[in-house]
């Protein structure tokens, strides 16, 4: 999940934070930590709901709606809890927690767990792998973009276009992991 089926570069999920938050290394790392945390929590809750509510009523087709609902309220609760109990952690995660609410990578990992019919331990491992892969790529990309800011790029490539090209080359490199096994 972290390298071969990387969420950003192989499955193309969570591209908005990939381009939006990858300008500074420190931001990217804290965003990645928040994503790992939320992915784990979301996987846990949604697995329970899928297993004991949706499957027992034969309502598997409702998974997307239910998962969105559950993830959104879960992030709300987590944000509230962190804010009230640990203000330093809240400041560190900052705006990234609410940003994750609609992150497609979080929904993606939950849906993929259902699709592959993982049990609870497998789901949690998959969630950690996905989160670590997300963090890895985000921090790699931000490191490259910090350097790119200093480089003398042609005017038409400056900013987003050169970031897209960098993402393409990164994606090619990650494709090679798939061929190794």
């Amino acid at each position: 999940m972290a390298l071969i089926n990387n969420f950003i570069l192989s499955k193309f999920l969570g591209l908005c934070p990939f381009f939006g938050v990858s300008k500074k290394l420190s931001n990217a790392v804290s965003m990645g930590m928040a994503v790992i945390f939320v992915m784990l929590a979301a996987t846990l809750i949604s697995w329970v709901i899928y297993k004991y509510v949706l499957e027992s009523f034969g309502m598997e087709f409702m998974q997307i709606v239910i998962f969105i609902l559950v993830i959104a309220s879960l992030v709300q609760i987590i944000e509230m809890t962190i804010r009230r109990t640990n203000i330093t952690l809240y400041n560190a995660l900052g705006i990234y927690l609410p940003l994750i609410t609609t992150n497609c990578a979080v929904l993606g990992v939950v849906l993929i767990n259902v699709q592959y019919e993982f049990d609870i331990v497998q789901s949690l491992v998959a969630a950690i792998g996905a989160g670590v892969g997300f963090t890895l790529v985000l921090s790699m990309m931000s490191g490259i973009r910090e350097r790119l800011d200093l480089a003398d790029t042609p005017a038409c490539f400056r900013g987003m276009p050169i970031a897209m090209i960098t993402a393409m080359i990164l994606s090619l490199a990650f494709l090679a992991f798939g061929g190794m096994i």
Binding site: V53, M62, I66, L69, S73, Q76, T81, R84
Partner: peptide, 28 residues
């Protein structure tokens, strides 16, 4: 009908969970 009911129940459950975390957590 069942799908509507399940969606409402899960939504209500989420709402209740948010309400109680808001109420019973130590206030700032």
């Amino acid at each position: 009908i069942v799908s509507i009911i399940i969606l409402s129940i899960v939504g209500l459950g989420c709402a209740i969970a948010i309400y109680f975390t808001n109420k019973y957590l130590p206030s700032e």
